[in-house]
Design a protein around this nucleic acid. Structure first.
Ligand SMILES: [Zn+2]
Ligand SMILES: [Zn+2]
Ligand SMILES: [Zn+2]
Ligand SMILES: [Zn+2]
Lengths: 164, 164
DNA sequence: CGCTGCGACGTTACTCTATATCGCATATCG
DNA sequence: CGATATGCGATATAGAGTAACGTCGCAGCG
């Protein structure tokens, strides 16, 4: 596990961006310059990043940027499964589980879980089918028809747990 | 408005408030008038209610109320396990799983899951230990030490699923 | 060519959510 | 009595998200 967000050197980010552009194109969508810039900022951030922090950084390249600018890009990136929203943090993070989903045949709106370290802020995405099935099963047992689920765990990451 | 599934009549609300006051007292905390008013509003609401909707209603009885007024009360009520926050909705709801937790020996910060109907807005709290254990187990498998978890499922409740 | 529809983006102006402070009153204790 | 803690009123500000409208560029078409 390449430690939540600390991975991704600059090269790797650009490579990911190219892959993302290809994936979008394959679905008839296009990763425009703006969307690419926003995705680059998210991937370059060490941790989940808020919409307004994103906006501040974006303004360096695009002075006219306003909240709708970044939110529209975020909506697109989320639809494409390139970015997830961390509800507990009101922040956004790049999807790091794509390979697994492709292997499992999942589309671009796949079930996932977040492990959020309350010490260092690192956030890791995991995709445990036992979890998603347990949740779905509990929901159905209550007569509920599940569509989307949010599973976020707060605690201490491996690195921060050692220090204790 | 008993549509939210597990609804409480007005009498039941007052009874719940008395129970809550007793539970707080047993822990050395006090359910003051303000906190009681806020909890009453939450329990009387048919659905999870936002902090500012709460504030509007609170001002009817307490004209000077301001955001910190309601947020302080909410913080207290959450600490006491009387109220939960629904992250997906930025809203608050009364705990309806208290009996189960007492039976299980859980304290006042118990693991729970929400089923949120995207059609009618009804939100049900369930406490499935298989879910919380599956999540905790997945977290530990990643070297993570879980402390608190948020599990929220969006979909259709039994009533709204029938209509299809 | 001009017309039209559409998607992406710019721009303004808001609403809603949440927190930071400051300050005052009371209560409780040594 | 002073000292500390809690509850709460009041103002201000930060952060998150949306509505509404306008503009530009481009594809399709008569
Ligand atoms: Zn993902
Ligand atoms: Zn950590
Ligand atoms: Zn509960
Ligand atoms: Zn429903």
């Amino acid at each position: 596990m390449a430690e939540a967000g600390i991975m991704a050197g600059t090269q790797s980010v650009e490579a990911t961006l190219d892959e993302a552009a290809a994936a979008c194109a394959a679905r008839g969508a296009q990763l425009t310059d703006l969307r690419r810039q926003v995705l680059r900022l998210i991937l370059a951030a060490p941790h989940p990043i808020g919409a307004y922090a994103l906006l501040d950084q974006l303004r360096a390249e695009r002075p006219g940027a306003a909240p709708p600018t970044v939110y529209r890009a975020l909506d697109f990136l989320r639809q494409q499964g390139l970015v997830h929203r961390v509800e507990r943090l009101n922040a956004f993070v790049g999807c790091t589980g794509a390979e697994a989903h492709h292997a499992c045949g999942h589309g671009h709106d796949h079930p996932h879980q977040f492990l959020i370290c309350s010490v260092c802020g690192a956030t890791a995405e995991v995709c445990d089918s036992r979890v998603s099935e347990a949740v779905a099963s509990a929901a159905r047992a209550a007569g509920f028809r599940p569509v989307r689920m949010t599973v976020e765990v707060e605690g201490r990451c491996a690195a921060c747990a050692e220090v204790t």
